[in-house]
Design a protein around this nucleic acid. Sequence first.
DNA 1: CGATCACAAACTTTCGAAACTCTATTGACT
DNA 2: AGTCAATAGAGTTTCGAAAGTTTGTGATCG
Lengths: 244, 244
Amino acid sequence: MIDSIHAYNARMATKGGKQTLSDDVRARLRADILSGRLLPGYRLKFPTLSARYDVSVSVLREALVRLAEQGLVQSEPHQGFLVTPLSRENLTELTEARIELETLVLRRSVTEGDLAWESQLVAAHHTLERTPYTAQGDDDRVDDCWSVAHADFHKALLDGCANRRLLQMALGLRDEAELYRRWSQPLGDEPSRDLAGEHRALLDAALARDPQASADALCTHVRHTTELLLSAADRLDQQRAPSS
Amino acid sequence: MIDSIHAYNARMATKGGKQTLSDDVRARLRADILSGRLLPGYRLKFPTLSARYDVSVSVLREALVRLAEQGLVQSEPHQGFLVTPLSRENLTELTEARIELETLVLRRSVTEGDLAWESQLVAAHHTLERTPYTAQGDDDRVDDCWSVAHADFHKALLDGCANRRLLQMALGLRDEAELYRRWSQPLGDEPSRDLAGEHRALLDAALARDPQASADALCTHVRHTTELLLSAADRLDQQRAPSS
DNA sequence: CGATCACAAACTTTCGAAACTCTATTGACT
DNA sequence: AGTCAATAGAGTTTCGAAAGTTTGTGATCG
């Protein structure tokens, strides 16, 4: 809630209030979904949301329609909207699509990226490296700052791709995947994983301008993440149905 | 997104036309744009459209927002919507993206497609082959039936891809490209081009389950089309500014 | 003559309520 | 008891108008 208010103010400050209300609400909804304040599968009722964001249904509809087109929420005719539910099939399909598209864009990025791209990438990696994974005092909850730094690093990786259309599609898929990352976090205890190492490998391959090595590193990174999520889901299922 | 499309189709099949007004208007707008009844760059004013489709602004907004997310129209805050204007840069970027994504999906399709896919593909090709390119009595205007058959054939080609997400993205790009095809048609006189031969080559490579050959054939096909469009645009520019 | 400001017209965006659709519950009937 | 129909309640979709923004016009001043 606080965060979304901050995001709101920031937006207002930078763009000088020139956006439409709908843009703003869409951004706040997106943030609330990605950060886990709105749960996957949750039904998004207009009366509730209307009170929460203090806008009319028209504005909400417009925002939701856009998020639906993007895949973050789903629309059922005459039954409204719901946050896209998580499922193994969806995660598997999403991961497959991400690997294809993201590696494609990354290859282009490391080939086409200029000096400004390189510099931004180095900066993003530096930030990520120095941001603690877990917030202090709460060891099994990933820090929001780290999530932001992580997303920024991956965006910086791809950002060299001159074809904005391909880039946007790849980023859209990353957004959807972020939903799953969020929800696996409380399941906690990643088996010893060298995340920093994987990111370092990505950075090195990119700076070396090696498309193949970059793509391989990214593929490993994404696959690894998905495997952990799937096994976490399995564990959760077992907890729910201990013996039948 | 995929799921909601499935849900939508299921609903249509079972319930018989119970979609929302907005869905309907979106489809009509999309058809009007792709068929050239609404020109690229044309400003879409609410009062006009409201009268044309006999609906209120709310449903128009919703339909337009969805088309904007899809790329067929653009939205300028506080200045409404316009049909996405044509430009060389946009066409070039679009073509590049299409080649990457469509070949990717086609490779998967010819690898994963089952017998039903094969059969549908053969059927689509047969229809296309027997549909005349130009309507009778009007030699320099491509027949609408042919356009439909052409789109169906290309969709059938890609439809074997099991990953619906990748498939939908590829089809979305094809939709946008269709805008350009429509507008090059009145410029007419395609230099002697063996379109039927290119389609036959695509069919053969696909049925032979040869991913590389299929991708190559598609790449040639798409590149060729874009080159013709670009040269047609050049000719048009020269006509407009004969000597300065 | 040119620039600037105020004003008006046209349009976009947002709102609140009316119309309509789904869901769950109650009550009647077999 | 079990099934089905009617109905009330909750929620979604659509509408028409109010509020707000941009654009074009014309008058005033330098």
